Simulated assay, not measured.
Amino acid sequence: MSEVLLEVNRLKKHFSAGNRFFGAQAVCKAVDDVSFTIERGKTLGLVGESGCGKSTLGRCVLRLYEPTSGEVKLEGVDISQLSGRQLKAMRRDMQIIFQDPYASLNPRMTIHEILREPLDTHKIGTEDEREAKIAEVMAIVGLRPQVLNRYPHEFSGGQRQRIGIARALVLEPKFIVADEPVSALDVSVQAQVLNLIAELQEKKGISFLFIAHDLGVVQHICDEVGVMYLGRIVEKAPAEVLYRHPKHPYTQALLSAIPIPDPTASKESMKLQGDVPSPLSPPSGCTFRTRCPQASSRCKEERPNSHNTGEQGTEHLVACHLYD
């Protein structure tokens, strides 16, 4: 049995909205009671429409945002209870690859300075060892050492994202949050970056939380896939199981929207009703009910719990009354 590296239990992140001087403040439940685990050397893909809380969840796991409640454990250590030097030391094991390769790198620092900064901050190795580590990660991401003295604006989007990956790798982390790392890149460059992440997982044994809004992207890189809707995971299963037998109506709709790379093939797309509700005033009961073609009166009254519908020991969690 594989070892669990990351464990997230009932994580919540609520934001206050509105002006507290002119009436009660509204509460945005960006992440609402989310639980999952990631095994060592495995990748969990997190997908859903924009605004569903994916990126907020990733930042809460790393404590870039302070969670409202819940716990996050890395190798059994509750990160939410750490502070000061303990948290700083733990950050060596947890890194992030940001979505925008144009905004995530300091334009006033050379690539060498960007990669050297984490090593200096954590006082890792001698001068020669730090330079050797920088050369190593540059080779891993396929960039020549001759470019180390250049600035971010001198690189293409794909090259910048490789630099962002190198920065995440330089501390040799055990866990990386990849926050839509290919959404701003051309399709051909996307494939290069995805292949690089897959190679890193195989060679280094790094665990990933891979955040994306495109189910087609995560299909070939993730071991498990979780589908988020308005702050909750509505379905989670091994990737091959979820793509072959999606059970939640929302997952079925997302998968039906993936284009087929064959102009002669026909495919029936499942159309959802209406727009995504505001997270400031989500629907009662099941938050997906206002767009679900199979909604019943029960969906309006009760919020569904996650049920394991997997067969032969496979975990396939679905939060839907259809599977009670």
Results as ranks from 00 to 15, higher is better:
residue 114 I to E: 10
residue 162 R to Q: 08
residue 150 R to Q: 15
residue 137 V to H: 04
residue 135 A to Y: 14
residue 163 I to H: 07
residue 131 E to V: 08
residue 148 L to C: 06
residue 114 I to Y: 04
residue 150 R to A: 10
residue 165 I to M: 03
residue 169 L to V: 10
residue 125 G to I: 12
residue 113 E to S: 13
residue 135 A to V: 13
residue 108 R to W: 07
residue 108 R to H: 11
residue 138 M to R: 01
residue 158 G to F: 10
residue 159 Q to F: 02
residue 158 G to I: 14
residue 168 A to G: 05
residue 164 G to W: 06
residue 116 R to G: 01
residue 139 A to F: 09
residue 143 L to C: 00
residue 146 Q to T: 13
residue 113 E to M: 09
residue 131 E to N: 15
residue 169 L to E: 09
residue 121 T to Y: 12
residue 165 I to H: 07
residue 118 P to K: 09
residue 115 L to A: 05
residue 167 R to N: 02
residue 155 F to E: 08
residue 166 A to S: 11
residue 120 D to N: 14
residue 127 E to C: 13
residue 108 R to Y: 12
residue 139 A to N: 14
residue 117 E to S: 08
residue 114 I to K: 04
residue 139 A to R: 13
residue 142 G to Q: 10
residue 159 Q to P: 05
residue 159 Q to C: 01
residue 143 L to N: 02
residue 149 N to P: 00
residue 125 G to E: 12
residue 131 E to D: 15
residue 110 T to E: 08
residue 160 R to A: 00
residue 152 P to T: 00
residue 151 Y to M: 01
residue 132 A to L: 12
residue 148 L to Q: 04
residue 124 I to F: 07
residue 139 A to E: 14
residue 167 R to C: 03
residue 157 G to A: 13
residue 160 R to T: 11
residue 116 R to Q: 15
residue 139 A to Y: 11
residue 164 G to H: 07
residue 140 I to Q: 14
residue 110 T to C: 03
residue 161 Q to F: 06
residue 167 R to P: 04
residue 117 E to C: 05
residue 143 L to P: 00
residue 150 R to M: 11
residue 116 R to H: 14
residue 162 R to M: 08
residue 148 L to A: 03
residue 156 S to K: 03
residue 108 R to L: 08
residue 156 S to Y: 05
residue 132 A to I: 09
residue 125 G to P: 09
residue 146 Q to E: 15
residue 131 E to S: 11
residue 154 E to T: 02
residue 125 G to A: 10
residue 113 E to V: 08
residue 116 R to V: 09
residue 108 R to Q: 11
residue 156 S to L: 01
residue 160 R to M: 06
residue 127 E to M: 14
residue 131 E to Y: 11
residue 126 T to L: 04
residue 141 V to L: 07
residue 120 D to W: 09
residue 124 I to Q: 11
residue 126 T to Y: 08
residue 112 H to W: 15
residue 118 P to D: 12
residue 159 Q to Y: 02
residue 122 H to A: 06
residue 123 K to P: 00
residue 140 I to F: 10
residue 126 T to G: 14
residue 144 R to D: 13
residue 154 E to H: 06
residue 168 A to T: 09
residue 132 A to N: 12
residue 149 N to F: 03
residue 153 H to Y: 14
residue 148 L to D: 01
residue 163 I to K: 05
residue 134 I to F: 05
residue 142 G to F: 05
residue 132 A to F: 06
residue 134 I to Y: 10
residue 128 D to W: 12
residue 165 I to Q: 09
residue 150 R to C: 10
residue 151 Y to C: 00
residue 151 Y to N: 00
residue 143 L to M: 11
residue 146 Q to K: 15
residue 124 I to H: 09
residue 164 G to P: 02
residue 116 R to S: 15
residue 113 E to R: 09
residue 112 H to T: 14
residue 112 H to L: 13
residue 142 G to A: 04
residue 154 E to A: 03
residue 113 E to C: 07
residue 113 E to P: 07
residue 109 M to Y: 12
residue 148 L to S: 02
residue 167 R to E: 03
residue 129 E to T: 12
residue 132 A to Q: 15
residue 157 G to N: 07
residue 165 I to Y: 05
residue 133 K to T: 13
residue 116 R to W: 11
residue 151 Y to P: 01
residue 144 R to H: 14
residue 150 R to V: 10
